[in-house]
Design a protein around this nucleic acid. Structure first.
Lengths: 161, 161
DNA sequence: TGATTGATGTTATGTTATTACGTCTCAGCC
DNA sequence: GGCTGAGACGTAATAACATAACATCAATCA
């Protein structure tokens, strides 16, 4: 089965990319960050694909587009985008995906379908979070959390029958 | 600062290793699994270190002990131990750590101190879990979950002053 | 005995990520 | 104008993590 790229729901995202890049652009200007051509293009690539891509996949696309062809080109752009919340890294896949809820301060959780490779980003309530509770009882101060679940998405469950 | 290897509390673990290996041994016999010499030694190494080790660190130790010196030797042993719940992989670190609660069926959560590299394994209540809730509302069936938090452990917080 | 299974070992390779260094641009300042 | 420092980008080289493919061996069992 082909990867279902849009979380678990199909939709027309003809405007998604442009809108999201526009939003990132504005957000960077406000924050005094430089959304340079490589960085912007990297974000576009992830938005266009709408699924998790490895750094080398991104690099190949960047290289085709006339940017540098060495790993640091992709990693630096991805680091920037990740650091500022426009992109997330899926640790379990060593891959990157455009944030589905940019701008909002959030701790994302990801649902990874092992059947169709789709990755959905879910919002979490930080105050109710498991990790927050654990942290509180142990006196640990959390700076970043990784919440990922592998399994089977609704679409693949349905077509398993 | 040196890594504090025992979760976040110091303790004498002179008996930990032997006890845990013994438990694993019994558990494997009951389940009809082969805790072979490489596998047992791999578990011992992780228990002795009591912190997250990379596969190549483990491999180096195995090799010193007369086992094979090529990556598959370590990866296969780690795969076995991980698959059967004696060891966990910390995705964020690409590293492995002996399970702190073997035998129990559980979804572990890890607290990773970026200052001293200690990793603590916390138990979670699967039914209350964030991911379980998300999964329920979206119809996603979870098979494996990754819960990891990076931050500063109580000890390092205390010594920061 | 012969077939099958599972464990181990090796060689080779693939994949992911970083270090180190040179250049360019631009803002701030003399 | 000319100097300087910060940040971005490019490259070469290498490090770190992981798997594929194949040979061997021992245990089990029809």
């Amino acid at each position: 089965m082909d990867p279902n790229p849009i979380g678990f729901q199909h939709h027309d995202h003809s405007h998604c990319v442009a809108d999201a890049v526009e939003a990132a652009d504005r957000s960077c200007r406000e924050a005094g960050l430089q959304l340079t051509p490589v960085r912007k293009r990297t974000l576009e690539i992830l938005l266009e694909e709408h699924r998790a891509l490895g750094a080398y996949d991104v690099l190949a696309r960047l290289s085709e587009d006339g940017f540098g062809s060495q790993p640091p080109v992709a990693y630096r752009a991805l680091d920037f985008l990740t650091k500022h919340g426009f992109v997330h890294k899926i640790e379990k896949l060593n891959a990157f995906i455009a944030c589905a809820h940019p701008g909002e301060l959030h701790t994302p959780a990801f649902l990874i379908c092992t059947s169709c490779q789709a990755v959905a980003e879910a919002e979490t309530d930080p105050s109710h979070s498991l990790l927050a509770n654990i942290a509180e009882t142990t006196g640990f101060r959390i700076s970043r959390a990784v919440l990922e679940a592998e399994g089977t998405c609704p679409n693949c469950l349905a077509s398993e029958k």
